[in-house]
């Protein structure tokens, strides 16, 4: 069953009407095709209208939609011969970050990403996509593997943030994230990151210091959650909508700030409505980026990557 967001109420109402018409006409021979078509058109129009100008907070809601495609869907959708690789070789296997080797449009690659899970059981197993240090250390191990065997690295980012827990802190959450960033800046192999849903702070950037960074049209990427920001700066989570606007966390804002390199369009009504289309678009983007980066000398790639991030922060001073 489709789980609607609050601002989708008018769409839901129309879709309800269509359902009703179909139900009524079920027994009789009344021709309702015309009427259904008309309503269907209205739905599309409304979707275009609403999704054409989502507010930043509405984008957060879309990015967090429970039916949005997850890492598992992307891997099933466009990675051939995926071989998952487990464990950080130090302490444990953290299922909040999944990694492995596989083939994307013919290119063998290391794929690493946050997995949030799609039902209660899998969400618990993947800790809702909130990784512990082991997850980030596994990511580092896989980046090393890629570096040594000259495979490109694809990171798919979708997390509310790194897990804020006693065990995670005790085992060095901060250090694990810091080393991941360092690793991203060290490897001499192509690194491409895509923010597919929610890019939550340090837990996200740990996998997003890349040669090319893309975001889905309705994905968000922020230094802090809108709720967290509101409760700190406005002293009340009620200001989350205002905070979301102030933080400039949409893909469109981040492209303007030159923090990302491109936006991947989503199907009408968001990736959660037609996941297959979103998955397809993402694989096309990856293919283009891989073609561009594979074959470039590793040292050049690394130099450019570092220079890119050293320049990136200067945006504010210049502009």
């Amino acid at each position: 069953m489709y789980q609607a967001l609050d601002f989708e109420a008018p769409i839901l109402e129309l879709e309800g009407k269509i359902e009703e018409l179909r139900h009524i006409s079920g027994g009789s021979n009344v021709n309702i095709a015309d009427e259904v078509d008309k309503l269907q058109n209205k739905v599309s129009k409304l979707l275009k209208q609403i999704y054409g100008k989502l507010t930043p907070y509405q984008k957060i809601q879309v990015a967090r939609h429970p039916q949005r495609p997850r890492l598992k869907d992307f891997i099933q959708g466009f990675v051939q011969d995926f071989v998952p690789l487990a464990g950080d070789r130090l302490f444990a296997e953290d299922q909040a970050i999944i990694g492995g080797i596989g083939r994307i449009k013919g290119y063998a690659a290391v794929i690493i990403g946050h997995e949030r899970g799609s039902d209660t059981e899998s969400r618990l197993r993947h800790n809702f996509g909130m990784a512990r240090p082991e997850g980030y250390r596994k990511a580092q191990r896989l980046m090393d593997l890629a570096d040594r065997l000259k495979l490109p690295v694809i990171c798919l980012v979708d997390t509310a943030g790194a897990y804020p827990g006693l065990d995670a802190e005790t085992r060095g959450q901060a250090e694990a994230i810091a080393r991941s960033i360092e690793k991203c800046l060290t490897i001499k192999t192509p690194l491409i990151s895509i923010i597919t849903g929610e890019g939550g702070s340090g837990g996200a950037i740990a996998l997003a210091v890349a040669d090319q960074i893309f975001m889905f049209e309705h994905a968000v990427y922020s230094v802090i959650s809108a709720e967290g920001c509101a409760s700190i700066l406005w002293r009340s989570a009620d200001y989350k909508v205002t905070a979301a606007e102030a933080l400039k966390l949409t893909a469109q804002d981040l492209l303007k700030l030159k923090v990302i390199d491109g936006i991947i369009p989503e199907p009408l009504g968001g990736a959660h409505r037609v996941p297959q289309e979103a998955i397809h678009k993402l694989s096309d983007t990856l293919e283009r980026a891989l073609k561009e980066l594979i074959g470039v000398d590793g040292s050049v790639l690394r130099e450019k990557r570092r220079a890119k991030f050293i320049e990136m922060g200067r945006v504010g001073i210049v502009g």
Partner: peptide
């Protein structure tokens, strides 16, 4: 927080 994502990018920048 007042510098949003550009503050987050300082993590990569300072590591570099």
């Amino acid at each position: 927080m007042q510098e949003g994502i550009l503050s987050l990018m300082q993590m990569a920048r300072t590591v570099a």
